[in-house]
Design a protein around this nucleic acid. Structure first.
Length: 256
DNA sequence: ATGCCTCAGCTCCTGAGA
């Protein structure tokens, strides 16, 4: 079973690239972030034609997430139960015996801002919910655009970007707290090239100079950890014409 | 350089992203 996450930064613009990518990468589940479209514009038909059913949770202009799968997805939940939120950031479902959660974590803008406080509250609510979900569904994957780096290895300029958004101790505390629930950063279960990132700024030739951050993550539960065969960042789509600024991250689960 | 790029929309500028 292959699962992937990709922040597409507008599905309207990126749909052809998503269809191409799915044609070349036979994943079973793909979660998307930053659709930037309402549900009535979601391309169900185009995805169905290439063998994917989809559940979406859209929003005008900002945010918006979706879960695509070959097998039926059941018990679909939108956003974090019990956490009132007017932004569409989370979609989750049961697929092939695995609880799959796709999330577009808040950006946070700047430490000390209202948006940063919202990010902290959102992360606290997420963790409370994930703790419950893990108890009910031991085989769980939490993936998406976390908008947080784990440590300096995830940052192209750890000195210059110290304590800036995505790199603060407060944000990283919440990432480690998810690990403390028994989750594992699938990417770091394997040796990886140094300076591996999942996002590069559009400005100043960020991708060409590999000035990036690793902020898109796949966390797997204890029960799934032994089944993780590989976890890779696919940098190819970042070289497309009109690319998303994020690359897809792909997880391979093997049979037990 | 409170910009550099990209996207959406109350679209020829602004807000937001990261």
């Amino acid at each position: 079973m292959k699962l992937a996450t990709w922040n597409v930064n507008s599905l309207t613009v990126r749909l052809p690239q998503v269809l191409d990518w799915l044609g070349a990468n036979a994943v079973d589940v793909l979660v998307l972030q930053e659709l930037k479209m309402t549900d009535d514009r979601f391309p169900f038909a185009a995805l169905q034609q290439i063998g994917y059913q989809a559940h979406c949770f859209g929003q005008k202009t900002y945010n918006g997430v979706a879960l695509l799968s070959r097998l039926p997805a059941t018990a679909v939940i939108r956003n974090i139960p019990g956490f009132s939120d007017d932004m569409a950031r989370v979609i989750s479902a049961e697929v092939g015996g695995v609880r799959v959660i796709g999330g577009y974590f808040p950006n946070g803008q700047e430490p000390g801002s209202d948006k940063f406080e919202y990010k902290m509250n959102w992360l606290t609510a997420l963790r409370r919910w994930i703790r419950e979900e893990l108890a009910a569904h031991p085989k769980l994957v939490l993936m998406g655009d976390y908008n947080i780096t784990f440590d300096d290895a995830d940052v192209w300029d750890p000195v210059g970007l110290k304590d800036t958004i995505h790199c603060t101790e407060e944000e990283r505390y919440h990432l480690r707290a998810l690990l403390a629930l028994g989750m594992h950063d699938a990417y770091r279960l394997f040796p990886q090239e140094p300076k591996s990132y999942s996002w590069w700024d559009y400005r100043d030739f960020g991708f060409r100079r590999n000035r990036g951050l690793r902020i898109d993550h796949i966390l797997v539960s204890e029960a799934l950890k032994p089944l993780v065969g590989s976890c890779v960042i696919d940098k190819k789509p970042r070289s497309n014409e009109r690319p998303s600024d994020h690359a897809p991250v792909v997880l391979q689960l093997v049979e037990p």
